[in-house]
Amino acid sequence: MNDFNLLLAVFLLVNLIIALLRVARGPTDADRLLAALLFGTTGVAILLLLAFTADTLVLMDVALVFALLAAITGAVFAQRAWRMEGVGEGKDGNS
């Protein structure tokens, strides 16, 4: 069972790494951020799997904090970083 959980964790991690491609592709900043948001959920899953793998249930607390704070990145992004029209959609940022 433990190995199985671990395997799934590996799978989810691969999944996550692939999702990081979205960061590169864009085109809008929101698309890039989606990868980070995905991390909130996937990270929770991976942590929970790890928690039940080695009987380190304390990792659940880490997952809890992950889930609790997952909203903040997105909210800051929406409220602060991605406001009004950009200098040019899709290629704004460091100019």
Partner: peptide, 20 residues
């Protein structure tokens, strides 16, 4: 990466990975 925002997002991801 050239795009600043992308760098920040990747850094956030980096932080989450560090937690793992």
């Amino acid at each position: 990466t050239r795009d600043l925002f992308r760098a920040v997002v990747l850094f956030i991801v980096f932080g989450l990975l560090m937690a793992l």
